[in-house]
């Protein structure tokens, strides 16, 4: 059961990566990467259960934080460069 869930999360991550490579445009890519990040958190949490290593959950929390901040930072960066160009 748990292994099946992990496999499904991996497939989801691959599909998100495909969208990130296909684009088109930066927003589709950011959206896909954001999704990839949340799936990573889930993957870490589920694997923590599977391997009986609850400390993985701390890594999951950290990754959730980093993922959110990263999306905000990327959005901010793209907007800064744009207002500079305009």
């Amino acid at each position: 059961m748990i292994v099946a869930v992990m496999a499904a999360i991996l497939v989801t991550m691959l599909l998100a990566l495909a969208r990130a490579f296909l684009g088109p445009g930066r927003y589709n890519r950011i959206l896909a990467i954001n999704m990839f990040g949340t799936k990573t958190v889930l993957f870490v949490a589920v694997s923590g259960y599977l391997f009986g290593r609850p400390e993985f959950l701390d890594i999951g929390i950290l990754y959730a934080l980093v993922n959110f901040v990263a999306v905000i930072a990327v959005l901010r960066l793209t907007h800064e460069t744009e207002s500079d160009a305009a």
Binding site: A4, V5, A8, I9, V11, T12, L15, A16, A18, R19, L22, L31, A32, M35, K39, L42
Partner: peptide, 12 residues
């Protein structure tokens, strides 16, 4: 699991 896989398929 069904939801997240659907989300990814929708993304594509």
């Amino acid at each position: 699991t069904l939801f997240i896989v659907s989300g990814a398929v929708g993304l594509l």
